[in-house]
Nucleic acid binder design. Structure first.
Length: 460
RNA sequence: GGGCCGGUAGCUCAGCUGGUAGAGCAGGGGACUUUUAAUCCCAAGGUCGCAGGUUCGAACCCUGCCCGGCCCA
């Protein structure tokens, strides 16, 4: 009968820790302590009575020296999960190692690993079998940890600032809070359709009405659209809302939040993305939306004129039925890609911003900003409309956009308007695309490298 | 949706002008007490993405489809 594989391996140390213990040793020497390590065997070099293994855990890699006279036969294949105990040592050539006394097989590999030298490079396989990518490519492990630590840092900062983390519905009877088409599903027992949320915005602001004052949520949003290097149909978004604050307060906070995350995760406020060194240290460049378009000669309130100017520049405007879509196209085509260093664009046309309050001196311009890095929008923020009647009239304006052919225009939400009618404090709110931030922090140029299991077509 | 590129052993790849499929690593067997892409010997490993077509003969040429990448929309 085959021996039963151990169900646990307690009291293990991290490989990185043991490596550090090996550093001061002379070549060929070993410490008189005993350490226990567990992990995946990623290389094997047999030298007759002495077997060398490379053991990998989350923290790093170390060489195992296995003298057969002590350990017995080493019945270990590449990819097996083993636990060992032994003494920190250095090989004669100076390689940090563990001189193994005993080795136990914890899990036997059944399907051979990919080529341990070339790793797994096939892009499709890396996405479909991310576990192999993580196993074979140290870079993939590193990126996953950077993302995780970034989210942890953001939570720490918001918690420290007194924000409350909440969870709001993913399945919503109405969708809103962004311009996008939703996924639809069906609730059988109620025989009602539900939309997967495209944003958390309208529920979070209901909580501001309810007096929670400072709330945030980190979660998945879903938008029924194609995939690109910066778009993914399910993506992770942070949104926060802060009572008694406006968009200027929010600008200061987002600079602090991102710079601090970079500092904590990367050890510096800078990172390299698409060959550019990007520095998140505040203050970020700030520029009016209108001025940014003006720089490209693309600011006009006249839809026909704007259409003409875009066509002159060989832009296909056939799918832009409204001025809003045209100006958005102009912005995303000419302005956004040039915003490499962290930049805040502020004061947007009211047509693009159904939830933002007007500026004091111009009712056609609202207190909204978007912020960019690496040529990508990272997020969007407003001084929130907190008056029910004003919100209702913005929804009405959006219906006109929809009637003019913009399928992504806001659909309106009477229940949300009712919530506002009970009074909402003046409020600043913001969204942050976590996947895109992770792209910039890791230097990965595809959002699919920032997402552990990106969406792919189903196979066979 | 359109254009370009790709899919050959578990992985990384080669395969010329159409002539019966190759290597390295991994996996199996063996040798070796300081190797680290260890080395050496032996044996094994294939629906060439799928389906048609052309041809005496197709991984290779043609058509359609599937999956992926990049760019455009």
């Amino acid at each position: 009968m085959a021996p039963i594989a151990p169900k646990r391996f307690p009291d293990r140390d991290e490989i990185a820790t043991v490596r550090r213990e090996c550093e001061p040793l002379e070549n060929g020497a070993q410490a008189d302590t005993t350490r226990r390590l567990a992990g995946r065997v990623m290389a094997r070099r047999d030298m007759g009575k002495l077997v060398f293994l490379d053991l990998v855990d989350r923290s790093g890699r170390i060489q195992l020296l296995c003298p057969l006279e002590r350990t017995g036969e080493i019945d270990v294949h590449l990819g097996d999960v083993v636990g060992v105990s032994g003494a920190p040592a250095k090989s004669r050539r100076g390689e940090p190692s563990l001189m193994v006394d005993s080795l136990e097989l914890l899990s036997r590999i059944r399907t051979p690993l990919p080529d341990t030298f070339h790793g797994l490079t096939d892009v499709e396989l890396r996405y479909r079998k991310r576990y192999l990518d993580l196993l074979m490519n140290e870079e993939a492990r590193h990126d996953a940890l950077v993302r995780s630590r970034t989210v942890a840092s953001i939570r720490r900062t918001l918690d420290e600032w007194g924000f409350v983390e909440v969870e709001t519905p993913v399945l919503q009877p109405r969708y809103g809070g962004a311009f996008a088409e939703p996924f639809v599903t069906h609730w059988n027992s109620l025989d009602e359709d539900r939309y997967l949320r495209i944003a958390t915005e309208l529920y979070l602001k209901r909580l501001i009405v309810g007096g929670l004052e400072k709330v945030y949520e980190i979660g998945k949003d879903f938008r029924n659209e194609g995939v690109s290097f910066k778009h993914h149909p399910e993506f992770t978004m942070l949104e926060w809302y802060e009572a008694y604050a406006d968009y200027r307060d929010t600008m200061d906070r987002i600079e602090q939040l991102v710079a601090r995350a970079a500092q904590e995760v990367l050890g510096t406020t800078t990172c390299t993305f698409r060959g550019h060194e990007i520095d998140f240290a505040p203050p970020w460049r700030r520029m009016k939306f209108v001025d940014a378009l003006e720089e490209h000669g693309l600011w006009t309130r006249d839809a026909d004129e704007l259409r003409r100017r875009l066509q002159e520049r060989d832009v296909d405007v056939s799918k832009d039925p409204t001025w809003s879509k045209l100006i958005d196209h102009a912005h995303s085509h000419f302005v956004e890609p040039a915003l490499v260093q962290p930049t805040i664009l502020y004061d947007y046309p009211v047509e693009l911003s159904p939830f933002a309050r007007a500026t004091d001196d111009d009712p056609s311009i609202v207190e909204r900003f978007e912020y960019f890095a690496g040529g990508m929008e990272l997020g969007n923020a407003f001084t929130e409309i907190n008056d029910a009647e004003e919100q209702a009239s913005r929804f009405t304006s959006q219906e006109a956009e929809r009637a003019a052919g913009d399928v992504e225009a806001e659909g309106g939400d009477p229940d949300y308007v009712e919530a506002l009618s009970y009074g909402m404090p003046p409020t600043g709110g913001i969204g942050l695309g976590i996947d895109r931030l992770a792209m910039v922090f890791t230097g990965r140029e595809s959002i699919r490298d920032a997402i552990l299991f990106p969406a792919l077509r189903a196979t066979g």
